[in-house]
Each structure stands twice: as structure tokens, then as C-alpha cells.
Computed example of a mutant assay.
Amino acid sequence: MNVKALAVAICLAAPATGQGFAGLGTEVDGFSVPQPNPTFDFPADHGAHPDYRIEWWYITANLDGADGVEYGLQWTLFRSALAPEDGTGWETPQLWMGHAAITTPTDHFVAERLGRGGVGQAGVTADPFDAWIDDWSLSGPDFDTLRMTAAGADFAYEVDLTATGPLVFQGDRGFSVKSSEGQASYYYSQPFFEVAGTLTLPEGEVAVTGSAWLDREWSSQPLGGDQTGWDWFSLSFDTGERMMGFLLHEGEDTSYTSATWIEPDGSATPYPNGAFAAEPLTITDVGGRDVPTQWQVRLPDRGVDVTVTAMNPQAWMETSVPYWEGPVHIEGSHTGRGYLEMTGYE
């Protein structure tokens, strides 16, 4: 089939007025919509939800190499649906897209895969857990013990992830509101993965260890029609606490915010719109785009006032829907490392 047509279908729509970023603000008909007070069913909810329009399995990792270099790692599987049903063969309305990346202080390696679910090219099963697209996979006997693999033209990786803490439910017990109009997703994370494995780069193999953060989200209209992108932070502090926070752009000077404070034992406190703040400090030319690559991030209720700086400011994902994604360093009231994703800067 036409790969470009498949990419357009997977992305649902290009950014446009009234549709939100990448069409995620378009109104839906026939799809299920997240409701408050969700009840999750595991391990089933680790799998796919074909009656919702958009879903992802998203892993980012901060790693240290045996060569003394810091690395960032990304593995993402996106599912989008043209209709709220599963289907078989090439007629399935379930479409899949995979992104993989390795970031170093000087390079950013990116690859993308596109696929149909009904022919076995891509999909997710819950028990035992297996998520795949082509020869990329995230799989294991359960959701706590996973092996993650991917490869591009000039890189590859194979790493093991072992959970050392519980799942964390974002928003109100997993119901994550994204706009003042009430658009929302079901959203939980596993921010306690330890990582060990091997990266393959043009100069050879590198053994790595570190930590990873997995995000699971599904919805049908996660954004408002006027929301043009977001800035998402996952921050792991040296003291053991973690924090997730995001800004959703609603205009030149306005945004909708949300945050979650995570204790070392996994207990979480959600914060509503307005409690979390992030302001750009440094703007970098990234392939002709003005992209914020250093931020002042605050969560006053927890005494957080930190500078978040990109390890490699040029970590641009040149994919069907382009965006910025890369590892960051944290300094100020707290220190540590994390990941930053920014969309809507094309």
C-alpha cells in the first residue's frame, strides 16, 4: 500500500485550526470516550483498546555507557483507528506507527515504522505482554520484566527493563484531563524501570545501564480544538522522587497544565491546572525552527524550582509527525535527569 497514505491515516490529520495538534482535537463519532473514576483491569489494560481512537506505549530512558558517555533512548508504539473496531487483514481500521531513537551529546539517531495490525505486522497482546511492529519489540512474561529492541539504518539497541516500583496513575486515579473543556485520556506510568543492555552505534557496541520511564495513554479526543501542541517533562530527582508535568498550548501566551508528584515508594499526588509552571529560558535553532531547549520548571507546593537543559539541543524527530524528544539535565532546588518532549514547533 502507499506508505505516505498510511502515514497520513495514522497521524489522523495534519495540524489545523479546530483540530488540535496532529488532529488530536477533532471531534469523534462512535469511539469510546474516557470517563471519570476509571476502573483499570490488569493485565488486560496493558493491551490495546481498539474502541478508542488513539493509544500509545511510550518508553524513554536515561543511560550511562561503559564508555563514560550519557545516552538517551526512546521506543514508542502508536495505535490509531479509523473506526472503533478491530478487524482482520488489510481491511482492519487499526493502524500502527513506531518510533525509535538514540540520543548522544553530539548525535540523534531516529527511525520510524508504519504498519497494519490485521496482517500481524504490528500489535499488542497483554498476557504475556508483547508489543511489536516489524522486528521491533517490547515483550516479556509480564509488564514488570521486559526486553526492548529496535533498529534503524545506523543504530540498534537491545535492553532489559525491570520494574522496581509500582504503576503510577496520572491525573485523578488515571483520568488525565487535558483542557478546560474536559478532554481527557486514561493515563498511567511505570517510572521505576531499571535498564541494562547494549546500544549499537556507527562506532560499535556500547554496554549501558540506567533508568526508564514508561507512559501508557489512550483516548479518542485527548486535546481541545485550539490546542496546538505540548511540552511534557518526566523528571527523576537524585533524592528518589519523580515528577511528571505538561503544558498544553492554547494560544500564544496561554496553556493548560497538569502535574504529578511521585514519592520513592510510588505514592502519587496530582496537581491541577495552574499548579505547575514551565518557562523557556533558551531558544535554539533546530533545523530552522525556534525550539526551547532550556526551561525554568516550578512546582511551588513541593519546593521545585529547577533549570531543565537538553543534553543535545538538536534532538529533533524527523518523522511523519515531527517533534522534539530528548534527555535533559536538572539543576537547582533538585538535581537529576529526565526527558522532555515538545510538539507544535514545526
Results as ranks from 00 to 15, higher is better:
117 G>Y: 14
138 L>F: 08
258 S>W: 09
303 G>W: 05
295 W>F: 12
132 W>S: 13
208 V>I: 10
344 G>H: 04
322 P>N: 00
158 E>M: 15
175 F>H: 02
55 E>C: 05
346 E>D: 14
192 F>Q: 07
125 T>V: 10
204 G>R: 03
122 A>E: 01
297 V>S: 02
13 A>D: 13
187 Y>N: 05
134 D>L: 10
338 G>L: 10
109 F>E: 06
24 L>N: 01
182 G>N: 04
151 A>Y: 10
228 T>Q: 09
301 D>W: 13
54 I>W: 00
130 D>M: 00
187 Y>P: 13
177 V>S: 11
34 P>M: 03
235 L>A: 05
141 P>C: 05
292 P>A: 07
225 G>L: 11
292 P>I: 08
162 T>M: 09
333 S>F: 04
309 T>W: 03
12 L>N: 07
291 V>M: 06
108 H>I: 01
145 T>H: 07
346 E>S: 12
45 D>A: 14
131 A>Q: 08
199 L>A: 12
5 A>P: 08
88 T>S: 03
293 T>M: 14
251 G>Q: 01
259 A>I: 15
228 T>P: 11
215 D>R: 01
99 H>L: 09
272 P>T: 05
105 P>S: 05
320 S>D: 11
39 T>P: 06
96 W>C: 03
129 F>L: 08
345 Y>T: 00
93 P>T: 05
106 T>I: 10
321 V>D: 06
332 G>T: 12
160 D>Y: 09
137 S>W: 05
339 Y>R: 13
320 S>K: 01
93 P>E: 04
245 G>I: 08
239 T>D: 08
307 T>R: 11
183 Q>A: 00
3 V>T: 03
281 L>G: 12
77 L>Y: 01
132 W>I: 01
65 G>A: 02
227 Q>N: 08
253 D>G: 06
155 F>N: 02
23 G>W: 02
167 L>Q: 05
8 V>F: 11
184 A>S: 07
48 A>N: 07
253 D>W: 13
147 R>S: 00
251 G>R: 15
256 Y>E: 01
208 V>W: 15
56 W>H: 12
229 G>Q: 09
196 A>F: 09
342 M>S: 11
146 L>S: 08
178 K>L: 08
249 H>G: 03
324 W>T: 08
159 V>S: 06
276 F>D: 07
115 G>C: 11
278 A>V: 12
103 T>S: 08
191 P>I: 07
195 V>E: 04
214 L>P: 10
21 F>Y: 13
277 A>G: 14
168 V>L: 11
212 A>F: 08
96 W>G: 01
